[in-house]
Design a binder for these strands. Structure first.
Lengths: 175, 175
DNA sequence: GTCTATAATTTGATAGAC
DNA sequence: GTCTATCAAATTATAGAC
């Protein structure tokens, strides 16, 4: 139906994951799609609306992929492996940062509602892993630690242009 | 002498560490300092020059602080503790992200020369820790892992507005 | 070193025709 | 749903007076 809306979301996600929220404009997106910026505004009245739709879609996709990946995961280790596999796919499939990792860094510079959505994504990440690890306080710390390591290594791999760096960290994380 | 130049650097570092490179303008900085943007341009011809000066100063300060902190560190564990202490100070002293963590996330959206400087900072981070860990391949992976964990946890603490989160990860990292 | 003034471009956003 | 046209504001940056 509204194919344009999805195309805008695709381009916006790719652009923001590469350059950041403030480095992407409605005109950039419109030009890339061969439409006008007014048309982008038709689908997303404000930039904030676009950002929120982006995080919502991203989060949904992430947890859907996680569910698929973890169906046969019984042990804590298997669940961790599944979690890491989804993160790895984020980076490798597009050679881009996690959307929420980027927006999380820019936290104090984006609309409050948008960072709330980003923080909720991280909260859900940690909840999932903490549950996989047993659910107690130690499990929660381990979960936070794991998400932090994945996000930070992704950032390092992006800045240092070395995807292998991320894989080495993944190996260590699973050892 | 050139007190203004330093004041510009101070304001720019604080602003960029909070909101990101593209969310900070020369006028913002000038207004905060009660001067005009043309005066900022006198000290830093282009925004890229300001960014480069920022990373240079930041990196120097970081490794100076690390040297002080690690003077009495003999064991690997002590050196890791010193490294973590400097990172903790970055976050806690200002409640802001690491400058290079922010710019590293925005890697593909900032001038190439600027990201080169950021990547060099991370390289030096990893070199220092790898050396502290013994210098072999395993040590290097452990070093990368550690820097990634610190950077990622800082981002999480910032987005989720929970500095204690960072401290819990630190504890786990040192255990 | 700092200012006024200004250029050239980009940005987020809207009104209204088709 | 998409367009043309337009706006007000912001952005990087420069020229030249003081």
């Amino acid at each position: 139906m509204t194919a344009t809306r999805d195309k805008v979301l695709d381009k916006a996600e790719a652009a923001i994951r590469m350059r950041g929220y403030h480095a992407v404009s409605f005109r950039d997106l419109a030009d890339e799609l061969g439409i006008k910026s007014a048309s982008v505004h038709y689908h997303f009245r404000q930039k904030e609306d676009l950002g929120l739709a982006l995080v919502e879609r991203y989060s949904k996709r992430f947890f859907d992929a996680l569910e698929v990946e973890a169906t046969k995961a019984l042990t804590s280790k298997d669940k961790l492996r599944a979690f890491c596999a989804v993160y790895r796919h984020i980076l490798v499939s597009s050679d881009r940062l996690c959307l929420c990792g980027m927006l999380g860094a820019e936290a104090a510079g984006i609309p409050v509602s948008l960072n709330d959505a980003v923080a909720a994504f991280f909260e859900a990440n940690i909840d999932w892993l903490a549950s996989a690890f047993g659910g107690d306080d130690t499990a929660r710390t381990k979960a936070t630690y794991t998400v932090g390591t994945l996000q930070g290594s992704m950032m390092l791999a992006s800045s240092m242009k070395d995807v292998a760096l991320f894989d080495h960290v993944l190996e260590a994380l699973l050892a």
